[in-house]
């Protein structure tokens, strides 16, 4: 009996499982190497000379790595303007999607109104609509709105989207009703309630989910899909005249292969703007994370919720008393 109960020494357990562990580890390394290979090739090639990029058989590691290609990028593209354009598009669309989705998500999560569920279903259905389906009329609608050949024409169709509404609704449903009711009893207007009570409560969750999901799904993808429209819309807005204003021409230019480093994540203005935004969101999250935990833990504890509502009320009235 005693022998059976004695825990098996860790070493022996390890030895028994070693072949399986080694197999799993080998698989992990193999998959990781295959997945990382194109990325590594991209970085290596950006350091090669033009001759090396064209040689047969291919050169794997450049003989004398140089940053010439990165310097040439500045000659071929007017980087300042392109970065500015991408930054404007990224910031304006992301901010607008944030605000419009927050408002609509709040209405769907916490209001009861006629046709709520059918309306939500119809909006969500647009998530599954390929952008190409709306492209041809969109091309003319943007023209009717007088937004041709301007950044506004790229930004305007991207100020709201169904995915953002869906995401916000899911998060806002987790905010306790008591918190909202308490603020409402204090006479907070609906907009103030949304931005001062609900938004801070969902921001930590958003900081974690929003950038990765939204940035990929909503912004980059749609901005890229809009490239079709953009041949007409952005002629004067994007980059160097030698590229005819079309981002698409970057890859087709004679020095094409050298230029692709522009699109490396570190060089992509959209990604950079997003990472700025991410860190800003994270800072916000840090400030309110304790608050969020309190909310989550107190969810079912009405006494403490009401105590907090009373505290909020007290703080509100003291703030109000401070005002002249």
């Amino acid at each position: 009996m005693i022998e059976v109960l004695t825990p098996r020494p860790a070493l022996e357990r390890w030895r028994r499982r070693a072949p399986l562990n080694a197999l799993i580890l080998t698989l992990i390394i193999f998959v990781a190497v295959v997945a990382a290979f194109p990325l590594a090739w991209m970085v290596l090639t950006s350091l090669k000379t033009p001759q090396e990029t064209m040689s047969v058989p291919p050169v794997w590691v450049p003989a004398s790595p140089s940053l010439d290609a990165y310097r040439k990028v500045a000659d071929v593209l007017s980087l300042g303007r392109s970065f500015l354009n991408s930054g404007i598009i990224a910031l304006v669309t992301t901010t607008a999607i944030d605000v419009t989705s927050l408002m609509a998500g709040y209405a769907f999560a916490k209001y009861d109104f006629r046709f709520r569920d059918p309306l939500f279903a119809i909006l969500i259905a647009t998530m599954f609509l390929p952008p190409i389906v709306t492209l041809i009329p969109l091309y003319r609608i943007v023209g009717y709105l007088g937004l041709n050949a301007s950044l506004a024409g790229v930004v305007a169709p991207n100020l709201a989207n169904a995915f953002g509404i869906f995401l916000m609704r899911q998060f806002i449903r987790g905010v306790p009703n008591e918190l909202i009711e308490a603020a409402r009893l204090d006479g907070a207007s609906e907009l103030r309630l949304l931005f001062q009570i609900v938004a801070p409560a969902v921001f930590p969750a958003l900081a974690a989910h929003f950038p990765t999901n939204m940035q990929r799904e909503a912004m980059l993808k749609f901005a890229e899909a809009l490239d079709c429209v953009s041949t007409a819309l952005r002629r004067d807005e994007c980059g160097d005249p030698r590229l005819n204003g079309r981002r698409g021409h970057i890859y087709a230019s004679p020095e094409g292969y050298q230029i692709y480093v522009v699109a490396h994540p570190d060089f992509n203005p959209i990604e950079r703007a997003i990472s700025k935004l991410k860190s800003a969101l994270r800072r916000l999250a840090e400030r309110t994370v304790a608050g969020l935990f309190a909310i989550l833990q107190d969810d079912h504890d009405r006494d403490r919720v009401q105590a907090r509502a009373a505290r909020v009320r007290a703080r509100r009235s003291s703030l109000g008393a401070d005002r002249p």
């Binding site: 309306l119 953002g164 509404i165």
Partner: peptide, 26 residues
């Protein structure tokens, strides 16, 4: 309680934009 008016206000920006740039084109 039903809240048709505030709901309309909250939904107007997103729904309006999606209507103009998705539903009408569709």
């Amino acid at each position: 309680h039903r809240m048709n008016l505030p709901a309309f206000g909250m939904l107007a920006p997103a729904t309006g934009l999606i209507a103009v740039f998705v539903f009408i084109p569709m």
